[in-house]
């Protein structure tokens, strides 16, 4: 996928530099810089109120940034080129309650030149939602399916989904997720899914973006992030997990035992430690529990900071 301008922007789906958004009550996002390559499936993780919805709304041009810039396939979010290439499902799944499901899909067809009716109808059929039903009479889970159908029918290159599965039962969640990923894989769609339950996205995401308190804590390929950390266990006294220049993300003591999450790619940690590779969940929990740990942005997720606008 190359951009009309032919520059490297075509290879990143989403890129932020110095991005910040301030509300009346304070900063929701501050100094955010990262990039997501086109075609990746990224989990946007963070506790409630950490700034996930703000970031997605900025990308969908529903909010204007206070500082910095955001680029979607090299375009400003407000550009028509960007608008046609993204699809957004907001957290509360806004739909017109008086429209039937068929009307809602027709809305998508009328407002989008690249509409894929069959894909949209497939999603709706998957969830057994009748086309003649009024949206207002559907259950929360069914509404989510309609919202997802609308997003998939748009044939967007970047799907922004804000906690899409929060009101689905586990069975349907699995089915919807499967359908979504199949569509994404078939068309090379970039997907950003926000969640505060990582287990929801178990094994489907190849990229990770962790936001805490409005700042980026972790950004990059899941594998790289995972393999950049070690979980070490040893006796509580006498050992310093930070020895050897490792960054200690988190330390916990249970009885006489000390467990620490350290950032260490290759270097040995030293004698007296049991070293193992943490699960991705271990890493995330470690960062979430220690708000002061320094952020990690992998080389592939680093924004090309040539044009930082503040």
């Amino acid at each position: 996928m190359t951009d009309e301008n032919g520059d490297i922007a075509g290879s990143s789906a989403l890129e932020a530099t110095g991005l910040g958004r301030k509300y009346r009550r304070g900063w929701a996002l501050r100094d955010v810089a990262f990039r997501l390559p086109a075609g990746c499936v990224c989990a946007l993780v963070g506790p409630n109120g950490s700034g996930k919805s703000t970031l997605l709304s900025l990308a969908a041009d529903l909010l204007a940034p206070t500082t910095g810039i955001l680029r979607i396939f090299g375009h400003a979010p407000s550009a028509p080129e960007a608008r046609a290439r993204i699809a957004f499902v907001a957290q509360d799944k806004p739909l017109y309650p008086r429209f039937t499901v068929a009307d809602t899909l027709r809305l998508g067809r009328e407002l989008n030149p690249r509409w894929d009716q069959r894909a949209a109808e497939r999603v709706v059929a998957e969830a057994d939602v009748p086309l003649a039903a009024r949206v207002g009479s559907l259950s929360g889970g069914q509404r989510t399916c309609v919202a997802l159908a609308l997003a998939l029918g748009k044939r967007a290159e970047l799907l922004l989904l804000d906690e899409p599965m929060s009101d689905q039962d586990p069975l349907r969640r699995r089915r919807m997720m499967g359908a979504l990923m199949a569509e994404a894989a078939e068309h090379g769609t970039t997907v950003v899914i926000s969640t505060h339950v990582l287990a929801e996205l178990d094994g489907v995401c190849d990229h990770l973006l962790l936001i805490g308190d409005g700042r980026i804590r972790l950004a990059g390929e899941s594998d790289a992030i995972q393999s950049a950390h070690r979980l070490i266990t040893g006796a509580r006294d006498g050992l310093d997990p930070g020895a050897g220049g490792h960054t200690v993300v988190e330390r916990r003591t249970t009885g006489r035992q000390l467990t620490a999450l350290v950032r260490s790619a290759t270097a040995p940690v030293g004698d007296g430690w049991i070293v193992r590779e943490p699960s991705l969940e271990d890493v995330l929990l470690g960062y979430l529990r220690s708000p002061d740990a320094p952020p990690l942005i992998t080389a592939g997720a680093r924004a090309s900071s040539r044009d930082v606008v503040r």
Partner: peptide, 14 residues
């Protein structure tokens, strides 16, 4: 008020 502006404003039409 109902949030549906987010539905229409994220379609391809300006």
């Amino acid at each position: 008020e109902s949030g549906t502006y987010r539905l229409v404003w994220t379609q391809s039409v300006s």
